[in-house]
Structure formats: structure tokens, C-alpha cells
Amino acid sequence: MATHKLLYDDEMEDPFSLVAIHCSEEDYKLAYLLNQFLNTKFKRNKKDLDFSSDGKIILFPLYVYEDLKDYNTFYLVANKCKMMEASLQSSGGLFSESVSEKATTHYLLPEMKNVDYFLKIQTDYGNFSIESLISEINKIKQIISAYFVETEKIKSKNNLIFD
């Protein structure tokens, strides 16, 4: 009987472009600014991007805009998720229990901890100018900087699969 092997090839992945954005605004405010200045229509996805780590579910807000005219899909996602973790400590007395809270930060792409947001662009045709998009994003005064990220250098590229 013949055996069949399925080979996974990284070349078969959907190509995408990635833009790193440094901005101190909240995610909904950044989506609003991009809608206002770029004529996009980012909407919050019904399901956030979720990961589980150490038994905890980590949620990253995800915004999507589908450009049906040019066949482009844009994803805006936060790189940082801050969580408050409560722990109960008892010293053995009747009323001596104390609750302490510790803030922990989780990252979508841990190798790029200084980035606040990522803009992922998937295009069906190669007619999209990433340079002009970055130039327009950098004109927004609330955004500190935006730049192109080479996806080949990202170790945790699988975290950018949103489907």
C-alpha cells in the first residue's frame, strides 16, 4: 500500500505586511483616528484574539477593516495586554488575610515589547503601497511612529493568525 506524506511549507502561507505603531492612545481611539485620517472603517471584531498562558486567558482587542474595492483586509491589534492578578495571603490568624494585586503584562509578539499596536495587511493583489500608508499614519499627531516590520524576522509569527 502506498503511503502519502503531507508537507508543510512556509511558502504556502498567505503573504501579509506588518506595520508597527507606537501610540499611547487606547485601542478604540487609535481605530477612530485611523478611520478619520485614512478613510478606513475599522470595527471591533466580535471575538477578541485570545491565548491561554499558565491557565489564564489573555485577550487582545482586534479591529478589522475589509476593503472590498481593492481586496485588502486590515487588522489592528494591540501588542500589550495588562492583567491584574489577585492573590490571597493568610498569615494564620482569624482576620489576617490580605489580598494583594499584581499587574502583569503579556505581549502578542514578545520579541517586540516596545511596540504598542500592529497593523496587519493582507492583500490579494500586489497593488498596495505600504510606504504611502506608513507615511499617512505618521502624519497623525497622536501617533509617535509607524514603520514596516520584516515578517521573516519574527519568531512568534503564528500569533498573527487571526482566522
Rank of each mutant, 00 (worst) to 15 (best):
N114D: 15
S96M: 02
E97C: 00
S53L: 14
S98T: 08
L133A: 10
S17F: 13
T151Q: 02
V149A: 06
S24F: 12
S135H: 14
K102E: 00
N79W: 11
I144A: 10
L94Q: 07
I21L: 12
Q122L: 01
I161V: 05
F118N: 12
S17E: 14
K29N: 13
S156N: 13
E85V: 15
N138K: 07
T105P: 04
P61T: 04
K56D: 03
R44F: 09
E101C: 00
N45A: 15
S24G: 14
S53G: 06
K80S: 03
L34F: 01
N158I: 10
T73K: 06
Q122E: 14
L38E: 13
V99F: 09
L109Y: 05
S156Y: 12
Y8P: 10
Y125F: 13
N127I: 10
I161A: 01
P110V: 04
D48N: 06
E11F: 09
T123D: 09
D9S: 11
E136Y: 02
S96F: 05
L76A: 02
L133N: 10
F118D: 07
V77R: 03
S17L: 13
I57N: 09
G126E: 15
G93W: 04
E150D: 14
I134C: 06
A103H: 11
I134A: 08
